[in-house]
Simulated assay, not measured.
Amino acid sequence: MHLEYAYAVPPVRSGAPLSAIVRHALCDAAEAVAARDLRWTAVLEQLKMLHAAGRRSVRIVDAACGDGALLLPILGRARALGFVAIEARGVDGDAAALARARRAAAAMADRAIAVQFDCGSVEAALHAEAAFPADILLYAADRSELARFAALARRAGNMALGGPVRESAQ
């Protein structure tokens, strides 16, 4: 049996180090995954509106961030739009997922982006954020909890987007 493989290599930009080319390709792949989240388009529109209104800083909270698959590409897109101070917080109860998110965030290496990841529940994160609402707040919960969290989320974020918890692949 003979197997053939085809690999696509990103085009090399003149003078760009290989690490930058690989980082760019990985960011593109992460953004493609994030774009499958139904909240992606609404978040991008909100970022564009904030930027058009003259905002140069933004605060984003993901109260069920998992491994950062949605939050981190949003931060990259905010930076690309021209935000110069991006503060972000990801909260999740899965310590292993948070470790992956921290590693991915460290690879971003952008001084304009400050991101922290905390272990905790969605409800506790929403309560904590209500004191100083985020510009954009993302959260996920079981369908039975979405309605219960909705009012709290509106107090915790100027724009709050909730969604059902994704089923884990087993």
Results as ranks from 00 to 15, higher is better:
G82H: 13
R77T: 03
E123Q: 10
A124C: 00
G82S: 08
D110K: 01
G120K: 02
H51A: 15
A64E: 03
Q116N: 12
G82W: 09
A130P: 03
L50W: 09
R111N: 05
R79T: 05
A128F: 03
A101S: 02
P133V: 04
A99F: 07
A107N: 06
Q46V: 01
A42I: 08
E45R: 15
L72T: 02
I74Q: 12
E123Y: 01
L126S: 03
G68E: 02
V43I: 15
D67T: 00
G82I: 11
R100Y: 04
C119K: 09
A95K: 11
F83P: 05
D62R: 03
R56P: 01
A85L: 05
R55F: 10
I113S: 08
L70A: 01
G66R: 08
R111I: 06
R111S: 13
D92A: 05
W40K: 13
V61Y: 00
A106H: 06
R55L: 14
F132S: 03
G66N: 01
R36Y: 00
L38E: 07
R39N: 00
F117T: 10
L47I: 10
A29C: 07
V33I: 08
A128N: 08
F132Y: 06
L126N: 11
G120W: 02
D110M: 05
R39M: 04
R89V: 02
Q116R: 14
Q116F: 03
A104P: 05
D67S: 15
R103K: 09
K48T: 10
L75C: 11
V61L: 13
A42D: 11
T41P: 02
F132A: 13
A53R: 14
E129N: 09
F117R: 00
A85H: 10
A107T: 07
W40A: 01
R100P: 05
T41L: 14
A34W: 00
A114P: 04
A105P: 09
I113E: 02
A30R: 15
H127Q: 12
